[in-house]
Write a protein that binds this DNA or RNA. Structure first.
Lengths: 240, 240
DNA sequence: CAAAAGCCTGCGGGTTCCCGCAAGTGCTCT
DNA sequence: AGAGCACTTGCGGGAACCCGCAGGCTTTTG
C-alpha cells in the first residue's frame, strides 16, 4: 500500500508520516506534497489511492485538490485532516464526495489513537469516519432550522462578493424580485431581520453587509470559500 | 530566565519548547499555555518577562492577550510567531506595542536558525526582530499608496460589520457626508471605484459589500479582526 | 503672507436596496 | 379534487447608498 500526504505545515507533515507508518505497517511507501497543486500531480503520477489531505493550504486548498483527484478516480480514499470544523469546509467537502466513496474528516485536535483508528477504517476497511464535532456541525447545518439550501448559499456567496441584485439575477437566471426574496430568507435565517412593519429605526444595520459578517462569524463562510467564489466570479465575468 | 510559550497547537508547542531550550541555555523554566486566556493568567502569576506568542488561537487571540499583558508590564518582551503576515495582524500588533518595548514577529515558515537567532536577539539583546516578509508588508501597508489611515481603517471595519452610514456617523462623531467621503476614499484605495461620471453600468458591484470582500482577499481584514470589532460593537451598542 | 492642500459639512439627485402586497405555478398531503 | 406549501414574478414606495458640486475651516508650504 502507498499513502500520499498533502499538508503544508512541515511539523504536521512529519507527525502524519509517523502516525501513518505506525498505524499501517502494510504501507510500503509514503509520498509527501506540501500543497494542493503538488498533491494533484503526485496523485496522478503515482495513481495514489490513499490520501491524507489538509484543507487549509496556500497554493491550492484541499477541497479543490480533492475534487480534481476524485474526478479522475472516484474510488480514491481521502482522509481530510483539518484544524477546523467550519461549516464552509464541511459543506465544501460533502459537496464533492463521489457516490459511495470512502472518506474521513478528522480534526487535528483528536487523539493519536483516533487518528490511527480513522486511518485503518478508511484505508483498510473502506468505511467513512467523521469526527463527532464535525458530525454535529453537519446535523445542525443540514437540519432545516437555520440550514441553508444550496441556492440560498449560492446567493449568500454572491452578496458576499459584492454583486448587485440585478447582476445576481442575471447570473443565477432569476428575476430581480426572486433574488430579493432569497435575500429575505437569508436575512431571517441569519437573524439580522428588520422589524418589518414600519420604518422603525431599530436596526442600525445594512442588512446586506451585515449578513455577510454574521455568516463569517458563524463560520458559514470563510476565507477559502470566498477566494474560490471570487475566482469563479472572475471566470463568469469574462464570458459575459 | 523563564520563558512562557502561548500556542494552541500541541505539535508547534513542543517544537517551540525544543527550540527555546536549545537557543537559550540560560533558560531555567518553560511555562506553557494553550490559549490567550491561559497565557494571560500564567504571565500574571509568574511575572513572565519573556513570551513566545502565537497569534491565531481559539479562546482569545494573541493580540488581545499581548495587549493586556503589555498594559500591566510594558517591558515584557514578546516574540509573535505566526503562520501568516496578514495586514490585519501586522497592523494589530504594531498598534499595541508600547514605546520602546522589544518585540519580534517571525513567521512559522522561517528556518530554525532564524527562529533561534530571533529568540536570542529579543530575549537577551533586547532588540526588535521583524521577519523580512512581514517588514515588506509593513512598508507597503504604511506607505501612502494604498495605505489606510487609522480612521479609514476604522470605518472600513464599520461597514464590514454592516453598520449604516448614519450609525457610523453617530459612533465616530462625524457628519453623514463625512462618512460617505471616507467611503469614497476607501473605495478608490481598494480600487472598486465606480467609473464616476455618468450612470454607466460597468460596475456590477455593490461597492459597500465589494470593498469588504476585497479587503478580506487582500488580507487587510481577517477573521480575528472581525471578531474583535464585533465584540467592541456589541459593547458600544449596549451603552447607547 | 498668500496659495495650496487637506478635512468637514450641506445640498441635491440618480440608483440601489429592503420589503409589503398580490397573483401565478407546481408539488404534496389528506 | 381541494387545501396547503414552496417558489417565482410584478408593482410600488420609503429608506439607504453613491457621488458631484460648493463653501468653510485648519495646516502646510513656498
Amino acid at each position: 500500500m502507498e499513502v500520499l500526504i498533502v499538508e503544508d505545515d512541515p511539523l504536521h507533515r512529519s507527525f502524519l508520516r509517523e502516525q501513518v507508518s505506525a498505524a499501517l505497517p502494510e504501507c510500503s511507501t509514503i509520498y509527501e506534497a506540501e500543497n494542493g497543486q503538488q498533491g494533484e500531480t503526485l496523485a496522478r503520477a503515482h495513481r495514489a489511492a490513499h490520501i491524507v489531505m489538509d484543507l487549509q493550504m496556500n497554493a491550492r486548498n484541499g477541497i479543490e485538490a480533492a475534487r480534481t483527484i476524485w474526478r479522475e478516480r472516484p474510488d480514491t480514499r481521502i482522509l481530510f485532516w483539518s484544524n477546523y470544523a467550519d461549516e464552509a469546509y464541511v459543506r465544501g467537502v460533502s459537496r464533492i464526495v463521489p457516490n459511495g466513496a470512502a472518506y474521513g474528516y478528522v480534526l487535528k485536535s483528536t487523539s493519536e489513537e483516533r487518528l490511527k483508528l480513522a486511518l485503518r477504517s478508511i484505508f483498510i476497511e473502506n468505511q467513512c469516519v467523521i469526527d463527532n464535532e464535525v458530525r454535529g456541525m453537519q446535523q445542525r447545518s443540514f437540519a432545516q432550522t437555520s440550514g441553508f439550501s444550496d441556492s440560498e448559499y449560492e446567493i449568500l456567496m454572491d452578496i458576499a462578493l459584492g454583486m448587485t441584485d440585478r447582476v445576481i439575477s442575471e447570473r443565477r437566471h432569476l428575476s430581480l424580485r426572486s433574488v430579493q426574496n432569497r435575500l429575505q430568507q437569508i436575512y431571517s435565517k441569519l437573524d439580522v431581520h428588520q422589524s418589518a412593519d414600519s420604518q422603525r429605526e431599530d436596526s442600525p444595520f445594512n442588512l446586506r453587509a451585515r449578513a455577510v459578517t454574521v455568516a463569517m462569524l458563524r463560520k458559514l463562510l470563510n476565507y477559502g470559500a470566498l477566494e474560490k467564489a471570487e475566482t469563479e466570479l472572475q471566470h463568469w465575468m469574462r464570458g459575459r
